[in-house]
Structures are given as C-alpha cells and as structure tokens.
Design a binder for these strands. Structure first.
Lengths: 197, 197
DNA sequence: ATAATATACTAACACATGTTAGCAATGAAA
DNA sequence: TTTCATTGCTAACATGTGTTAGTATATTAT
C-alpha cells in the first residue's frame, strides 16, 4: 500500500498542499483534477480526503497562507522608523524574495484566488485591498516629504506588484540571470524609478 | 426563435468571440462553460456550433488576434528611425492603450494561453518569446548608446510588460483615475525609470 | 499480542462538461 | 411562391469531475 512520504516536521496534509501548489500553478486550479493531484502525491484520489476536506480547502490554505505572510510583513515594515523610500524598498525586496523562493504558492495565490467562494473570496479581496492601501499610504508619505516623485500612488503600487509577479517569466525562462542580479535589476528600475532626484 | 443580433460589419461568429472574451476574462477559460457562453449570447449551447468549431477555437481566435496586433505594431516600430527611448515609449503606449481599450481580449490572451494545445500552444509561445526578444533588443541598443540605464534588458522587458498588465486592477477598481492620467503615470515610472539622467 | 487509530483502496454516485445528430424555423434568392 | 442555405432547437452521448461509503491494511499505543 502506497503511503504518502513525509519529511520530519511536516504532516501529510502539508505534502498534499505543497503538491497542489505546484499543480495549480502548472495547470490552473480548475484544470487540475483531484486525480492529477493524487497521482502527483502517489496515491488514489479518494485517499486524499483522509487529509483534506475539499479541493477548495487546498486553495484556501494556499491563498491565505500567502496573504497572512504579506500582511504580517507589512505590520513589521509600518512599525519601523526608517524613511519612506527605505520602507518601499523593503516591501519590494520581500515580494521579490517570496516570488523567487515560494514561487508556486505566491503565484497560485495571485492568479487563482478568483476560484475561492464566499465568504473566503470577499475576505481575501479585502485583505488584498487593504494591503495595497497601506502600500500606497507609505508611498504617499514619501511623496509628501519629497523623497518620492510626485505620481499617483495607487498606480505605482499596481505597477510594482504586477512587475514583481513577472518573476514568473524568469522562473520559466531557460537562460536565467541569477537571483541576486535579478533582484538588483528590479530594485534599480522599480525603486530607482520612484526616487526623486 | 432567438437569433443572435449582429451590428453591421460584424458576423455572428464575431459576436460569440467577443462574448467569449468577456466570459473567459471573468471566470477563466476552464471555468467558463459553453452553456454560460450560450446564455450570454442569448441562445442554446448547441446553436453555437453552427458558427464555431470548438471551444478551443474561441481561445485561438482571441490569443492570435491579440498576438498578431502586437507583432504588427512591433514591425512598425522597428522600422522607424527614432531614438531607442522613443521606440520604447511607443511600445509602452501601445500596450497601455490596448490594455485599456481591448481589455478583455488582451487579458485573456495574456492569462489563458496555457489552455491552448499544440501546435497552437508552441506557436503562441514562440511568438511571445520573439516579441520579447525584439523588445529587449531595442532596449539593449538604447543602453549601448547611453540613452538607457545599464540594466538587464530581458528583466526590463519583463517588468514593463507585467506592470502594464496590472491595468487589470485599474479596470476593476472603483475609484479609477482617468485613462490619460493613468497612461502618463505609467509612462513616467516605466520609461522615466529606464532613462539615463 | 491486542486494541485502536490512521491511512489507504475499490466502487460508485451525481453532476457538469463539450459536442453531435436530427429536425424545425427563418431569411434570402429564384 | 417555391427553393435553399442559415441558424436555431431538443435530446442525447461519452467523458471527466469532486466526493462519499464501505472496507482493508498499516502503524501506534496499551
């Protein structure tokens, strides 16, 4: 009988969620079937239900796992007593890092949240809106004290977040520059592009 | 009997493709059913097949329609005798414009092409790769003659294209700044961020 | 060793899906 | 008016889906 192999400090459910992340990223939530997932895990489809409640639960776990990490990081950044531009850079660096090292989950959370259903859907959308509002507020503070170019803050946030999600293409490309170089280039363009000269 | 209404200069098939764009954007290709589409068009599902060959054909039409427009525009821009930075700006403006005014199609082409199947899939991916290569080449030319900051050109392309696709959020947001202002802000950050000072 | 719990399997269900066949109504051409 | 191609409808199909029931096996605790 094929059992799900676990590393130490990880439950079988976590294995499933992790494989789900990779599958949902590859095929999309709707196109990825529980039978696909079962095969990736090395078990029959029905067996998955000893560990999870539903397919949607997998999406919850992924989306809110990511959302919570970002929210928590935002708390920390806001609490700091650094310049606005330094805060922006720290947020950007965190995003880039997550997108590089927690690629699958972050990607899925970003692209597949549409398939959540209420009340999770509304909840997630609210968190997202809040996060962006707080990000924009930091940029606006920077504009007021002349650290940052006078631009529309929500637009800047939109550009930054989506630009970073472009790291998806980097992951898929065959001739990758290394991660550090990628980070530096992105910081140069995104943060450099905002900074007042 | 409910007939598909057509405006002048547009076939019934075009009406279907257009409604499909809006539906695929809203729900995703996989989650949007032919019965959903039929309802949006005002007809029974089976009737759609008098006009189209398959659900996938709808995706082809959308993806390659968009890809062809962008390729054609790239041809035009390359042929010009302007500065590199002017070419970049023109490409960016075109993208922004398309993303504002042909939102549904461009969005679907960008997010749902994964569900194409070979040989269309490979073909589409190639076109995409080519487009980005040509875009990067323009930026590299700009770097060589010092118009543009010395950065990794493929990374810059990745940032620009994904940032623009963020206009999706603008479409969905309730408090939109107007389109012209949005365009100017994006040009400022993206093109301004590249320009050598 | 025995009991209890966790985990897997097979079989099946109810439902949604894309699509086809065959036929009826419509509009344009003669 | 008759003819013919267009376009619509109903019914049905084969297949894939998420999920449950019931049962067998493996692991852990006593």
């Amino acid at each position: 009988m094929a059992r799900i192999k676990i590393e130490k400090n990880s439950s079988r459910k976590e294995v499933i969620v992790s494989k789900a992340a990779s599958l949902f990223r590859e095929k999309g939530f709707k196109a990825a079937s529980m039978r696909d997932l079962a095969e990736a895990v090395g078990v029959e489809a029905a067996s998955l239900y000893n560990h999870i409640k539903s397919k949607t639960e997998l999406l919850h776990e992924l989306c809110f796992g990511v959302a919570n990490r970002f929210m928590h990081h935002m708390d920390q950044v806001e609490a700091k007593k650094t310049s606005s531009i330094a805060k922006v850079e720290e947020l950007v660096r965190f995003h880039i890092n997550e997108m590089i090292h927690q690629y699958e989950e972050v990607y899925v959370s970003d692209r597949e949240w549409k398939h959540l259903s209420d009340p999770y859907l509304s909840n997630f959308q609210n968190q997202r809106r809040m996060y962006r509002k707080r990000f924009a507020a930091i940029i606006e503070a920077g504009i007021r004290n002349k650290e940052i170019k006078s631009i529309d803050a929500p637009t800047a946030v939109l550009i930054i977040l989506h630009a970073i999600s472009g790291i998806e293409s980097w992951h898929r490309s065959t001739q990758k520059i290394n991660a550090e170089e990628l980070t530096n280039n992105m910081i140069t363009i995104l943060v450099g592009g905002l900074t007042n000269v």
